[in-house]
C-alpha cells in the first residue's frame, strides 16, 4: 500500500480540559486526545503555545479521550503554558520517540528511579504495569524530590501505587512535616531488593549519572539500565538536528536508550 505522507510539522489544535497544581512550580494539564491514539510509555509530544513556540513534553497518562501532561515552569514555552486556562487551545503533535520497550520486560523485576519532574514518563510506565501487574515480577519505585512540597503526583506515590508495588520516597531538604527518608535518590539504593532487575531512570542528567554509577558499583550490568533523555528539540521527527547525541537523535532514536548503547557518548551526563 502506498503511504500517504502529511506535513508532520502541522500541529492539531486541542483544548485544555483541566489544569491542576502539583507543586508550586509544576502543573498537570489534561488535553483532548484528538487523534485517539494511545502512546507508548515513555513517548513524548510537541506542545505549541501559539505565538510563543513549541517544546517537547513527555506524557504521564493517556486514554482515547484524554492526554495528561505534567510540566514544570522553567522557560518561555512552559511559562506561557502556565498563563493558559481551561478551555484554551494549544497545539499538539505526536506521539514521537521510541518509548520504553516495556513488552521486553515481561517476567522481569523492575526498578523505576525518578528525580523531580522526571516522574511523568515513569507514571506512563506505572499505568502499563498496573494494567498488566501479573506480567511483571517485583516492582520498586524510588523517587527523590528537592523537598516535600516538590513531590509530583503525591496521590499516586502515597496512595495508589503502594497498593501494587514497593514505593520509596526521599527528599533532599525535609520540612517539619516530613517523617520519611532524607537524601538524594541514590541513598535509597541499599533498599533495592533485586539487582537482577531492569532499571528505568528518568531525571536530571546529574541524577542519572550518579544513579548509573551507584548501580554499576553494585554489579548491575549496563544492559539492565534504561535512561530517558532530554535535549533541545525543534521538530521531534529526526530532521532539525538539535537533539544530536553522537550519531543518535534523541527524538527518534530515543528518548529512551539502553545505557550500554550510549555509555561512551561524550555529551551524555553533561553539567
Amino acid at each position: 500500500m502506498m503511504q500517504v505522507y502529511t506535513n508532520e510539522m502541522l500541529p492539531k489544535t486541542v483544548r485544555i480540559l483541566k489544569i491542576c497544581d502539583e507543586t508550586p512550580d509544576t502543573k498537570t494539564f489534561i488535553l483532548e486526545n484528538i487523534t485517539k491514539r494511545i502512546p507508548k510509555p515513555g513517548q513524548f509530544y510537541m506542545i505549541s503555545v501559539f505565538g510563543v513556540g513549541e517544546f517537547p513534553v513527555s506524557f504521564g497518562s493517556a486514554n482515547e479521550n484524554n492526554l495528561l501532561i505534567t510540566v514544570k515552569k522553567v522557560g518561555q514555552g512552559t511559562g506561557a503554558l502556565f498563563e493558559l486556562g481551561e478551555n484554551d487551545i494549544v497545539g499538539l503533535r505526536g506521539p514521537y520517540g521510541n518509548g520504553f520497550p516495556i513488552e521486553e520486560f515481561t517476567g522481569k523485576n523492575i526498578v523505576l528511579i525518578g528525580g523531580g519532574i522526571g516522574i511523568p514518563p515513569l507514571r506512563s510506565v506505572m499505568e502499563y504495569i498496573s494494567q498488566h501487574r501479573n506480567e511483571f515480577g517485583y516492582v520498586q519505585l524510588l523517587y527523590g524530590a528537592r523537598s516535600p512540597k516538590d513531590i509530583v503526583y503525591k496521590d499516586k506515590l502515597l496512595k495508589d501505587w503502594p497498593k501494587i508495588i514497593d514505593v520509596k520516597l526521599t527528599v533532599d531538604v525535609p520540612d517539619e512535616t516530613w517523617k520519611g527518608h532524607v537524601g538524594v535518590v541514590t541513598t535509597l539504593f541499599d533498599q533495592i531488593k533485586n539487582l537482577d532487575s531492569i532499571f528505568l531512570i528518568v531525571g536530571p542528567e546529574i541524577m542519572m549519572r550518579y544513579s548509573v554509577l551507584e548501580l554499576k558499583k553494585r554489579g548491575v550490568k549496563e544492559s539492565q539500565i534504561y535512561l530517558s533523555l532530554e535535549r533541545k528539540m525543534k521538530c521531534g521527527i529526526g530532521i532539525c538536528g538539535h537533539c544530536n547525541l553522537g550519531r543518535f537523535y534523541v527524538c527518534k532514536d530515543g528518548p529512551v536508550f539502553r545505557y550500554d548503547i550510549i555509555a561512551n557518548e561524550r555529551e551524555l551526563f553533561y553539567g
Partner: peptide, 20 residues
C-alpha cells in the same frame, strides 16, 4: 539543521522555520 519559532503579526501568528 533548522530552528522553529513563532512570530506575531497583527492578529496572525506565523510559525517559521529558519536555518540554524
Amino acid at each position: 539543521c533548522f530552528d522553529v519559532y513563532d512570530v506575531k503579526i497583527g492578529n496572525e501568528i506565523l510559525r517559521i522555520r529558519e536555518w540554524d
